[in-house]
Simulated scan of single mutants.
Amino acid sequence: MYIEYLPHPFLSRYVETYWSSTDFTEKEVRRRVLPDGCADIIFSLHRQPLPHIVGTMTTFLEITYLGEVRFIGIRFKPGGITAFTRVPINEFTDSQVELFSTESVFDKSFGEDIPWERSTTDIVSSVDNYLLSRLPKLYVLDERINYAVSLIKQGKGNTPIPLIAEQACLSKRQFERRFLADIGISPKAFSRIVKFRNTHRLLKSGANRSLFDLAVDCGYYDHAHLIKEFKRLSGSLPSEL
């Protein structure tokens, strides 16, 4: 069971959603998590609930589990976690790092004061309150990178990178460097993920059109290119998803 919870409005600039995932299986299960351009902080409640940063993913992540599993997560908006840590986000890309091993606004009370024995709603409320208490200590976000992210999303991943850099008032080299540090991946990689997720959403909507037409409408050269991107980012063919 997977459930999402909205953050406090004061945190909506940084946090996309809180989420919980619970499952129990008597046989080994394999799941794939698809890239979304975001970084998360995750508590594994079926183990010792120490928080880990799961960095921005450049491809799918496959997880295998058996028995009971329970996760609580904070999914930050692209670049949102930058306000909570001084460490360049690209140091976490495609990896998991213990939160307290990095320089951030979090202290050991994050986790120790959370009522793990209570309901998920109570746990999420406690996490939300903790993040609200950190607001005075947050680092300043680079609004130029936030603006660039919004341009990429508006263009559904098809806006040329030099044009985005120009509109964000950054040289191409500055833009690449700042984007990588704040988002965790390059502007090109982020654009590919945005394009993939937009195409995936249209596939799930059940729109009655050919794969070639969908590919062209979403900015791919042809359906062969679309299939290649889907296999690279999700490990599956479009029809399998």
Rank of each mutant, 00 (worst) to 15 (best):
V149A: 01
S12H: 00
L50S: 15
L50Y: 13
R177S: 12
T93R: 14
L226D: 03
R197L: 13
F24K: 14
L151P: 07
N129F: 01
F106C: 06
H223Q: 14
T102G: 03
L34H: 07
F179R: 01
V97R: 11
P51A: 11
S20H: 04
A83C: 09
V29E: 10
L34D: 06
Y139F: 08
F71E: 10
D94K: 07
A83H: 03
L180P: 01
F24W: 13
Y220A: 06
T85V: 05
S186W: 03
I42R: 02
I227T: 14
V29S: 07
F179T: 02
L214I: 13
P7E: 09
G37H: 02
L211Y: 04
T56S: 07
V29F: 01
D36M: 06
P49L: 11
T25N: 14
H225Y: 09
H225E: 14
Y147F: 14
L237N: 12
F71H: 09
M1H: 12
V127S: 02
T93G: 01
S20F: 05
G67C: 06
L50W: 00
S44G: 09
K156P: 00
E103S: 15
L211V: 05
F43L: 09
M1I: 12
K77C: 03
T93A: 11
F71K: 10
F10Y: 09
R134Q: 11
